[in-house]
Structures are given as C-alpha cells and as structure tokens.
Simulated assay, not measured.
Amino acid sequence: MRFLMAGLGLVLLAGCVTTADLEGNKPSISVVSKRDPKQYAMCVFPKWQAARTDSFMVETTNGYRLWVANSGLADELLDVTKTPNGSLIELKQRMSWSPGLGRDAIEKSVRDCL
C-alpha cells in the first residue's frame, strides 16, 4: 500500500508541469510572419485541434499562446507575439527530436500558416 501511495504521489507531482517548463527551451521554429497574431492563431489552432484534441489557445496581452498537453504535460508551446510588421512565431517543444503523436501535423501547420 505504501508503494502505491508513493507512486501516486510521484504521478501527481509530474502532473503539475505547465507550459512554463517549456518557456526556457530553445525554439525549434522561430520565424516572423506578416500576418497579425489573431489571423495567424486562427489559422493554426483548428489544424492543431484536428491533429490533437488536447490543444488549447488563449489570448495574451501581446498576441496568442497555443499549447498541446498530454497527461498534464505540455508537449508543444506556440507563442504568437505582435511585432510592428506582423508576428513573431516561436514553437517550443518538450522533445523536438521525438516523433510524438500528431507532431508532424503540428509543425506543418506552423509553417503552412505563415
């Protein structure tokens, strides 16, 4: 029983990971788009939802933030930040080298919507 409780505690701690954990990662994609943040986010988000139902989007003070979570862990983080001529697009990934579920579609949509 103690092992079960200890294991459950570790699982709960792992579930506390947020998008903040990916903010320090180097972007796997960092580009500038002529589209404004809303246009870009509204292009990408439906494609993310089609690829992964666990996709989320929020409006920020200077753009939009999209992320994909899996079992409480953020796997993909896309920041769309307003610039004077459009948007700065930065995709940060937990394990960019790993072929995760829907990862190709996630990356393709980031590029296709530029």
Results as ranks from 00 to 15, higher is better:
T53N: 12
T53V: 00
T53I: 05
T53A: 12
D54E: 12
D54Q: 13
S55C: 00
S55R: 06
S55F: 01
S55K: 06
S55N: 00
F56T: 10
M57V: 05
M57A: 08
M57Y: 06
M57C: 02
M57G: 03
M57E: 07
M57T: 01
V58A: 11
V58S: 11
V58T: 11
V58C: 02
E59D: 02
E59H: 06
E59N: 08
E59Q: 15
E59F: 02
E59R: 14
T60Y: 09
T60S: 10
T60W: 08
T60L: 10
T61W: 07
N62G: 02
N62P: 00
N62V: 02
N62K: 09
N62H: 05
N62T: 07
N62Y: 05
G63I: 05
G63Q: 06
G63Y: 11
G63V: 03
Y64R: 00
Y64Q: 04
R65C: 05
R65W: 08
R65Y: 08
L66T: 07
L66A: 08
L66D: 03
L66F: 02
W67P: 02
W67R: 11
W67T: 03
W67F: 11
V68F: 08
V68C: 10
V68L: 13
A69D: 10
A69R: 15
A69L: 09
A69V: 07
A69H: 06
N70Q: 15
N70P: 05
N70L: 14
S71L: 15
S71N: 14
S71K: 13
G72F: 06
L73G: 01
L73E: 09
L73V: 14
L73A: 15
A74V: 14
A74H: 07
A74K: 14
E76C: 09
E76L: 12
E76Y: 15
L77N: 03
L77G: 01
L77K: 10
L77A: 10
L77D: 01
L77Q: 08
L78E: 00
L78H: 05
L78T: 04
L78N: 02
D79Y: 07
D79L: 11
D79S: 13
D79C: 09
V80P: 04
T81K: 14
T81G: 00
T81Y: 06
K82L: 03
K82S: 08
K82W: 00
K82Q: 09
T83C: 05
T83G: 01
T83F: 00
T83L: 08
T83W: 03
P84T: 04
P84V: 06
P84I: 04
N85K: 15
N85P: 00
N85Y: 04
G86H: 08
G86W: 07
S87T: 02
S87D: 02
S87A: 06
S87I: 04
L88I: 04
L88G: 04
L88T: 01
E90I: 04
E90T: 13
E90W: 02
E90K: 13
E90P: 05
L91G: 04
L91Q: 03
K92I: 06
K92N: 05
K92W: 03
K92H: 07
Q93S: 12
Q93H: 04
Q93P: 01
Q93K: 13
Q93V: 13
Q93Y: 06
R94F: 11
R94S: 09
M95C: 07
M95V: 12
M95A: 14
M95P: 00
M95S: 13
S96G: 12
S96D: 12
W97R: 11
W97T: 07
S98D: 11
S98T: 08
S98N: 13
S98W: 15
S98A: 13
P99F: 04
P99E: 09
